[in-house]
Write a protein that binds this DNA or RNA. Structure first.
Length: 481
RNA sequence: CGGGGCGUGGCGCAGUCCGGUAGCGCGUCCGCUUUGGGAGCGGAAGGUCCCGGGUUCAAAUCCCGGCGCCCCGACCA
């Protein structure tokens, strides 16, 4: 019986653990449609917290939200050669509407560049119209062959920013601004450390000049691309004829960017912090940061304890702490397991004994349980939340660093690491795409990014780990989701 | 698209080889006793056995043909 309720341990089968956890915590469920998932309230609440934090950050940096249609004329996709090549194989296409065949099929957006640039062409005439800084929260559809809850589903939710600028430098600055914004969000809200840097050509967004990414390492030592920011150059501007009159009186194409993060982040959160008891949610993203569990035997006790719980909840909410009370008629132990599996950061157990002592039992999701006085409880919890948020980031960073190999001595060590427990490998690379492909074929590892300066090794590698030729860059390899 | 597995109450499965009354666990509902780490006992509800065809007195079971899902590989936020 206990076994049927248990989550498969990570060490036994990481994939099974991941699926079990999502089902137990009721984050999502499979839908009747192949490859699509239903995001349940517990999972959606996390996404909403993410949305709120990111949306604030976007707005604080001058961006505005807008909404563009779900359907894109099929011909639009074809206007940018690389873009159509990249996305056409995985689009869903609507051929009929209202019982009639459409004159032109409509693609369900896999991403919105094309329809957005068609509009920008109308809206932008002068350098005075620039920059355009727009974001949209939307769903997109990509007909993936293999899907996994949150990580890769046929339909997913995301935000996509699309900006247009007067100069290449401005576009590059915007691309990096967002990359850094994503990094801040991932580290400070998700407590998920990332490595940032440009992608190689093989991993570049279809139609972009350059793609930058945030790469996180999951507990099974596989990398997760958590977010990308693209400098599109003038590629889409030229394809959609988005021109403007410059301050100097000339005519130029706009320089543009696009960037996005998706509900995949929820999967990243799970695989970064989850344990064998279930989800562990960082306080800043938790739907409920604190759950109060009233404990009683008699109806009389129940009345007293519930009343105390409600006044405690009111006080904590007043202090800005997202608090709920679980008053259901089931045994307290059952509630503990349930809230733990959902990752709720703190649990307050409140029974007659506690009332008598004017204290409450504080149980942390990361471990540890102690009686704390009711007086000053809110301040104490605020402290606890800050500490937990930091502890989670520190722990995740320590795990990642422990699974990172820098400057392997030989090609053999490089291969053995990737084929063993895996993780990030920092090593020299000659820059040859054929070598990159060969490494992928041999090890299943790809270059996650060319790390930004702060992530690079103290001593720059001098030779390519694969060919022994002079290294042009340091690269980070890993097997990835 | 190649390889493997599986479709039986809400969920997980047994039963299929060898045809003969539809079964178990969990969950759900009701009652009583419980309640500080997943409660116990008693009672109850709930099934076109994936679909279609065939063989047979009789099919979850045998035969033929479909469909769907999951896992492993090539593409991907």
């Amino acid at each position: 019986m206990a076994e049927s309720k248990a989550i498969t341990p990570r060490a036994v089968d990481f994939s099974a653990w991941y699926n079990d956890l999502i089902m137990r915590a009721e984050l999502a469920d499979y839908s009747p449609v192949r490859g699509c998932m239903v995001i349940r309230p517990n999972g959606y609440a996390i996404w909403e917290q993410m949305q709120q934090a990111l949306d604030r950050m976007f707005k604080d940096t001058g961006h505005q939200n807008a909404y563009f249609p779900l359907f894109i004329p099929q011909s639009f996709l074809a206007k940018e050669a690389q873009h159509v090549e990249g996305f056409a194989p995985e689009t869903a296409v609507v051929t009929h509407g209202g019982g009639k065949e459409l004159e032109e099929p409509l693609v369900v957006r896999p991403t919105s560049e094309t329809i957005i640039y068609a509009m920008y062409a109308k809206w932008i005439q002068s350098y005075r119209d620039l920059p355009v800084l727009i974001n949209q929260w939307a769903n997109v559809v990509r007909w993936e062959l293999r899907t996994r809850l949150f990580l890769r589903t046929t339909e997913f939710l995301w935000q996509e920013g699309h900006t247009a600028h007067a100069t290449e430098a401005e576009a590059e600055a915007e691309t990096l601004l967002i990359l850094n914004l994503y990094r801040t969000f991932m580290e400070e809200w998700m407590a998920m450390p990332v490595i940032t840097g440009p992608k190689t050509d093989s991993e570049r967004f279809a139609g972009a000049l350059r793609t930058y990414g945030c790469e996180a390492l999951m507990q099974d030592n596989k990398a997760l691309q958590a977010g990308t920011s693209h400098n599109l150059g003038q590629n889409f501007a030229k394809a959609f004829d988005v021109q403007f009159q410059t301050a100097e009186g000339g005519l130029d194409y706009v320089w543009s960017t696009s960037w996005g993060v998706s509900t995949r982040l929820v999967g990243g959160l799970i695989m970064t912090h989850g344990d064998d008891k279930g989800m562990v949610c960082p306080p800043r993203l938790a739907q409920w940061q604190v759950v109060i569990i009233p404990i009683w035997r008699t109806d009389e006790e129940r009345a007293q304890v519930v009343e105390a719980a409600e006044s405690m909840m009111k006080e904590l909410r007043g202090a800005g702490i997202r608090t709920t009370t679980d008053k259901r008629e089931i045994k307290p132990g059952a509630k503990y397991y349930e809230w733990e599996s959902r990752g709720t950061p703190f649990r307050l157990e409140l029974g007659p004994r506690d009332l008598a002592q004017q204290s409450v039992m504080l149980a942390r999701r990361l471990g540890g349980k102690e009686a704390v006085p009711m007086a000053g409880l809110a301040a104490r919890l605020l402290q606890e939340m800050t500490a937990m948020q930091q502890a989670m980031l520190d722990a995740a960073r320590a795990r990642r660093d422990a699974a990172t190999l820098r400057n392997p001595k030989s090609k053999e060590e490089f291969i053995a690491f990737l084929e063993g427990n895996g993780g990030f490998v920092f090593a020299g690379f000659c820059g040859d795409p054929a070598v990159e492909a060969e490494i992928k074929a041999r090890t299943k590892a790809t270059i996650r990014c060319l790390p930004d300066p702060e992530f690079r090794s103290p001593e720059a590698p001098t030779t390519c780990i694969w060919t022994g030729r002079p290294a042009t860059v340091e690269a980070v390899w890993a097997r990835a989701y």
